[in-house]
Design a binder for these strands. Structure first.
Length: 554
RNA sequence: GGGGGUGUAGCUCAGUUGGUUAGAGCGCCAGCCUGUCACGUUGGAGGCCGCGGGUUCGAGUCCCGUCACCCUCGCCA
């Protein structure tokens, strides 16, 4: 935009006053820039607008930070002045991407005959799962609504009602501690279908993944997406959402370890544990003693008693603090099993299966990132299927549903409900993108006998089940079609497709790690009158916070 | 609840073994320049060093506590 003497004195005077972030209307003629004034670096660098009339719609106070600045302000400042932060091109791009992806999802399901149905935000608290956000009832003191953790029960009821293809962009709420990829309120693409099996649900998502990757990233993803069982995921990667952008797969060496004299190995095997390891190719010389101590500490932090590290040397021999214990050909067998060649680094963990999974997963993730074993631009999508039906509940000592209590066991595993619940596998499937759980679903139980048995196993008495889920049980007994579905974490999808590592950057108005909103000040105190109407008395009133942000000493 | 990191000018940061008046870049204000766009140039203003306490002759710096933000474990069917 050019304002010169030819624009007239008034416009020129007005233009001189203009400051950053002012809102203007400029009327004039667009023409190619004169010779020598073209700027190829700007998208509009070839043209200019000769100002004929300048109108100042709105002046702007000096902003706390400049949205166009090179230096990004700290997140605290960005959140407190979110409207400025959202002016930044990167944030505009992120929200535009989100819009496009959500539209793709809606169109995809609309074309497949799904209808979007809204479900209540004010529902009933149900046991298990995450902590609920509660909303007190004014008309019934002492009673509370719960915000939905997901529309799970409602969407199943819609199946009983005959809407055999349901979808919803649904807000969900879970009052748990936050992470970089977790917000207390988040958005799911919630899906449920009748007369389907797991393949049908995964198929619908497969084509959505392919379509989205193609339209948004220009990536061609072959279908069907690879699937691996939960058991295989834990064996090969030590995690139920493995990052498969790189190798470093886990190899079991328990049988070799059992033959060794090395007490660490023998002890783990005799205690019913496992000895497993990963081979880091050509890494022996890249890791100093200090680096290896760091890896060891990571393994210890993950619950392991230690980490056995070994450097493969010429002639099938091993070097390392415990190498001398691996006599009698154990060293050669380990090298062969792990596929080691001279210069490789071998990392072994001897512990229970669970601990070895956790430790090796932690190491694998760390090494993959620090050794740059993958192109950060790749998008690896896959399914993990056949999750265990039950997990040990640390609190009760009994069984707990790994997903929710309406998850169907695999038909062939139904006898295991009686004989061996631990071995019972569910018709459950998680979508994994770049080592992140991007969605998950199950086929639901539609047989009341099986449902009864599952409730029993997780310690839910018929009375309590009726009390909590009576409406669902009644609905199931009223002619329920076989059904199942899935929920995709939209925030996380957008984050992954935008190649970001922070979910807040794809949410217009996110919350901090302590679930507060720095923009509005939520949550905040309310009037005594409001509390009185709700029949609520605050037992521990919040300490008054001084303007300096300091709480008074107790 | 546990572990780790950060907190100094409006913003991004530097600040030595504790030692005079706490600095830089950007922004802001005033002037000059007036077609190259992160303009240039001259000058200026701007600091509860997150908050509270302690040690010390002396604290941005050391100690204790506390608050906020970030990462993480637990947690998130």
């Amino acid at each position: 935009m050019v304002v010169g003497p030819e624009s007239g004195e008034a416009n020129l005077a007005a233009a001189k006053k203009v400051r950053p972030e002012w809102v203007l209307q400029v009327t004039g003629r667009i023409s190619p820039r004169p010779e020598g004034t073209v700027n190829a670096k700007l998208p509009t660098g070839g043209i200019e607008l000769a100002c004929e009339q300048l109108v100042v719609f709105s002046e702007a106070e000096t902003p706390v930070f400049q949205p166009g600045a090179v230096e990004l302000p700290g997140e605290e400042v960005r959140l407190a002045h979110r409207w400025l932060d959202l002016r930044r091109q990167a944030m505009q791009d992120n929200l535009m991407l989100r819009h496009r992806m959500v539209k793709l999802m809606r169109d995809h399901f609309d074309e497949a005959g799904f209808i979007e149905v809204e479900t209540p935000m004010l529902g009933r608290s149900t046991p298990e799962g995450a902590r609920d956000f509660l909303v007190p009832s004014r008309l019934d003191h002492g009673s509370f609504f719960a915000l939905p953790q997901s529309p799970q029960l409602y969407k199943q009821l819609l199946m009983m009602a005959g809407f055999d293809r349901y979808v919803q962009v649904a807000k969900c709420f879970r009052d748990e501690d936050l992470r970089a990829d977790r917000q207390p309120e988040f958005t799911q693409l919630d899906v449920e279908m009748s007369f389907v099996e797991a393949d049908d649900v995964m198929g619908v998502i497969d084509s959505l993944v392919q379509k989205t990757a193609r339209e948004v990233l220009g990536l061609e993803i072959p279908l069907p997406l690879p699937r691996l069982s939960w058991d295989e995921a834990m064996e090969r990667f030590g995690h139920d959402a493995p990052d498969q952008r790189f190798g470093l797969e886990i190899t079991d060496c328990t049988d070799i370890a059992a033959d060794s004299e090395f007490r660490v190995f023998r002890g783990a095997v005799e205690a019913g544990g496992r000895v497993r390891g990963i081979r880091v190719a050509e890494a022996a010389s890249r890791f100093s003693r200090k680096d290896l101590d760091t890896l060891t500490q990571m393994a210890v932090d993950a619950g392991a008693k230690g980490l056995v590290w070994l450097k493969v040397e010429e002639g099938s021999s091993l070097a390392g603090p415990v190498a001398k214990n691996l006599t009698g050909g154990i060293d050669a067998r380990l090298i062969e099993r792990l596929g080691g060649t001279a210069g490789d680094l071998l990392l072994l963990v001897a512990d229970s299966f669970e601990v070895s999974c956790k430790a090796l997963h932690t190491l694998r993730k760390h090494l993959g990132a620090t050794l740059e074993l993958y192109d950060p631009k790749t998008l690896h999508c896959s399914w993990v299927v056949d999750f265990p039906m039950f997990a040990h509940d640390a609190e009760t000592g009994g069984w707990a549903a790994m997903h929710h209590p309406f998850t169907a066991p695999r038909p062939q595993d139904i006898p295991l409900l009686e004989s061996d619940p631990a071995a019972c596998r569910a018709v459950a499937y998680d979508l994994v993108i770049n080592g992140s759980e991007a969605g998950g679903g199950t086929i639901r139980i539609h047989d009341s006998g099986v449902q009864q048995k599952v409730f029993e196993l997780i310690g839910l008495s018929p009375e309590v089940a009726r009390e909590q889920f009576g409406f669902l049980l009644d609905a199931l007994a009223s002619g329920a079609p076989p059904h199942g579905g899935i929920a995709l974490g939209i925030d996380r999808w957008v984050m992954l497709f935008a190649r970001l590592d922070n979910i807040r950057d794809v949410i217009a108005f996110p919350k901090t790690q302590r679930a507060s909103d720095l923009l509005t000040g939520a949550p905040g105190e309310v009037d005594a009158k409001q509390l009185e109407e709700l029949g609520i008395r605050v037992v521990t009133p919040p300490a008054a916070v001084a303007p300096g942000g300091t709480a008074p000493s107790p």
